[in-house]
Amino acid sequence: MTEQQIQDGYEQLDSALAPPIDAQERVATRVRARRLRRRVAAAGVATLSLVAVTGAAVLVSGGDDPADDFVATDPPPPGLVLTRPDGSTYAFTDVTVSCTSPFGEKGPAGERIYLTSPRELRGDDLLTPFVYVEGVVDELQGDRTFTLPVDGPGDSDSYPLTLFIADTEGSPTGNEVSSATESSGTVRVLRAACEPSPVLELEVAGTLGSEEGKQSLDIAGTVG
């Protein structure tokens, strides 16, 4: 295979697509959403919601310091509970902890740890919300508490901890939120180890911003 054949293939790829006719408006919508989220985060706009699942409650209120936004009024609920703006909730109680990437990515043994819920699918449709946590084991030691968002300066490979949730709700076709977007609150690492067996226990109280410019989701509870 010659260099020219590869070059020709790339030229074919380059000319194969045209943007949608409403590309300008689609981009503008995303820009507006990102700007709005940035302003909201910068202004420290108060959020007030009450999470109440299985008899436990966490009061979420606004404040200048995201770490002060969450005041536990009862012990955290068992499992990790997401609460949508309409008040509906979903609890992640069935999770698996592994030191092997669920997506088959290879890396040094024991370097990363993963916590996932079952992915319940019908075809390509996700039937229930899905949680995915990935952390660098060495950076989760010593009773660490992360203030959200956990992002930069590099790409997300370098983040010590990433919390990602795919929700089945959120107009029009679901939502994806993560700890790397404009989020607030904290994630406290209770335990994280690959030996002798994988264990990852987290205490979460926060609001995760949408990766798609959609609604933010409140997340609270313990998991692992």
Partner: peptide, 10 residues
């Protein structure tokens, strides 16, 4: 990760 998940959202 988002690309690899078969979700409604895309």
């Amino acid at each position: 990760l988002r690309r690899e998940l078969p979700l409604l959202t895309h």
